[in-house]
């Protein structure tokens, strides 16, 4: 074997090693959490509230809070984001406003999530007097997920072949009718995928809800959108760093982490499957 061949083989193995190392992080996270969190997981854990200073009981209020706040975020972000994306892909021509809009969206996607928290606090909680609540947190998360929804929706719209738009217009459809009846249905799988990913991102975020409505502990399930709420990620943070007997509640923290991660991974897996299923949607007609 020549020296060149030797370096090649070593080099390629090195690249493989990098890849395996990267994947091993996912492996470690999954293995550690699921192997240790599994035992504390039970139906009771999911269906009861914490008790005895959070050293016992379950996480029902946190699950409910996370679900609600994610739902509120989606309800606001989805129509708004899809409308923005439709404007960008279907109506906008290349001028200063469009460029400003695209630049805004790109940069919004890069804004740290805690900055959204600060913004939510200043705008929703204080300026609009909504108060620390599910609604304020949901709106904050909506802003956070907005750039994702816009970007993925725009891509989905872009993938709908122009031939369909032309066909609809040539049949006497107005622009809006062509969008409603042909373009949007065609882009739906892509929009759905993006929405699921945005959902999963919103469900796992902590920093934006920190000052806008999440509570250390609530005894009851939230009764209105103006209530404070418990959330899974914040609950995990509390159990793993802020509790007075950290070692005692470690199993609960593990189980909470498993539920949170499981939820997020399920959403992501379903998005990936959706994408694979509809990958060849336009292949035949393009």
């Amino acid at each position: 074997m020549t020296k060149q061949q030797f370096t090649k083989i070593v080099g390629i193995q090195l690249l493989l090693l990098c890849t395996l190392l990267t994947l091993s992080f996912l492996g470690i996270i999954l293995f550690d959490l699921f192997s240790k969190g599994y035992s504390a997981l039970s139906w009771d854990f999911l269906s009861t509230a914490p008790s005895k200073g959070m050293t016992q009981g379950g996480i029902l209020p946190a699950v409910a809070g996370t679900a609600l706040v994610t739902l509120v975020a989606t309800l606001f972000a989805l129509p708004f984001g899809v409308a923005c994306a439709i404007y960008l892909n279907e109506y906008a021509r290349d001028h200063w406003f469009t460029r400003l809009l695209r630049a805004s969206i790109r940069n919004l996607a890069g804004v740290p999530s805690i900055i959204y928290g600060l913004f939510g606090l200043a705008l929703f909680v204080e300026a609009l007097h909504i108060g620390a609540s599910i609604l304020a947190s949901g709106l904050t998360l909506a802003l956070l997920t907005l750039p994702y929804i816009i970007t993925t929706t725009e891509e989905a719209l872009h993938n709908v072949p122009n031939a369909y738009r032309e066909a609809a217009l040539a049949l006497g459809a107005t622009k809006w009718e062509s969008i409603k009846t042909v373009v949007l249905p065609g882009a739906m799988p892509g929009i759905l995928t993006g929405t699921i990913l945005a959902l999963s991102r919103a469900a796992g975020e902590t920093a934006p809800i920190l000052f806008t409505g999440v509570a250390f502990y609530t005894r009851y399930l939230p009764g209105s959108l103006l209530d404070e709420f418990m959330a899974l990620p914040y609950h995990l943070y509390i159990l793993s760093t802020q509790h007075q007997s950290l070692e005692q509640v470690r199993p609960l923290a593990y189980a909470t982490a498993v539920v949170l991660l499981g939820m997020v991974l399920l959403l992501n897996l379903s998005a990936i499957m959706l994408r694979i299923r509809y990958r060849n949607l336009w292949k035949t007609s393009k």
Partner: peptide, 24 residues
Amino acid sequence: WIKPAIELLAAVPSVVVGFIGIVV
């Protein structure tokens, strides 16, 4: 197979990553 796995890695919430930092 690897690309979806990396996507999943990206999806792990930061609070879970922090927890791994504490316990692992």
